[in-house]
Simulated assay, not measured.
Amino acid sequence: MTVEQWGIRVPVRQGELTRQALIGEGALDVTLKVLHDGDELVFPVLEEREGATRYEFAEQPGRTELSRHEQVGGIAIMQENDSKGAALILASRPSLHTVLFPTSEVSGKYRTRGYAVLAGMPVTRTEVVEHGHRFVVDLAGAYFSARLSTERQRIFAQVQEHELVLDMFAGVGPFAITLAPRAALVVAVDLNPQAALLMIENIERNRVQNVLPLLADARRLERILPWKFDRIVMNLPLAGTAFLPEAFRLVRPGGTIHFYSLVSAEGEHLDRIRELGGASVTERVVRSYSPGQWHAVYDVVVTG
């Protein structure tokens, strides 16, 4: 029996890395078989995403259909408050130690949310392995999205040797640590003390020597930092628009800003970006977020 589902196509040589990344995100549909098409593979994913197309997949024999969830390291985050479904998820994956259900939205100046433990160990701390890096996260204490793994690699591919990079909302450091191997220096800023402590732990864990962690309010960075930056990452989807003027003051002429936002219309922020000095703007959908709303990134080259 076949089932129509979203799928992403990759070369066979990238298959294992892609599979691991999708498992880490909790995005791989494990009830369906991977398609083999010549020198390419098609992985079934649980929801629409950039580059995904509908395909016919064969069902995976003997696999119980699991409730929708996102996997972050050893923790699964469910979309429903379903203890029986949580027990099935925990039993299906030996790598999991905890299943959580969010009891609130991401909110507050520290971008945190509450969780209830549905199964497993009563913890919100775990380790995430992503493209050779290891990140300790505490989901209740600091914001982290495994679904941005592909974005981190996309921006890493754009970083030129010896760039000066600013991560304005660094969280536990995944963007900063990922970009560090090519940059001269990455200044990684966050307002949340717990995020900053976890970032320092992750810098040490990954043996990175050119990331400068900074506990600060992004609105005051121009007064604190003596540099203009070649590249700025702004991952604050719910409120980043308010910080755009600060980013434009901190970027050098000809530099690039990667601005992430939740939007409900194409080109929602284009007028504001161009008003501030965006010479070239490319808008991309990162992932769907809710009906009528999606997570977008604006890659902005600033007026030279």
Rank of each mutant, 00 (worst) to 15 (best):
V10E: 05
R13I: 11
E16K: 13
L17E: 15
T18D: 06
L22V: 10
E25K: 13
E25S: 10
D29L: 02
T31K: 07
L35E: 12
L35D: 01
G38E: 10
E40M: 02
P44W: 00
E50Q: 11
A52G: 00
R54Y: 12
E56K: 11
E56S: 14
S67W: 04
G73P: 10
G85N: 03
A91K: 05
S92H: 12
H97T: 15
T98Q: 04
F101K: 10
G108I: 01
G114I: 07
Y115C: 01
E127R: 12
V129W: 11
F135R: 03
G141Y: 02
A142H: 13
A142P: 08
A142M: 08
L148Q: 15
S149R: 14
T150W: 04
I155D: 07
A157T: 01
Q158A: 06
V159E: 11
D167R: 12
G171T: 08
G173D: 03
F175Y: 08
A176C: 04
P181V: 02
R182G: 09
R182P: 02
V187E: 07
V189L: 04
L191W: 00
A196P: 02
N210K: 11
L214H: 02
R219E: 09
L221R: 13
I224S: 03
W227P: 06
F229P: 02
F229N: 09
F243H: 08
T256L: 05
I257L: 15
S261G: 10
A265P: 00
E266S: 00
L276T: 08
G277I: 09
S280T: 15
Q293V: 15
Y298H: 11
D299E: 15
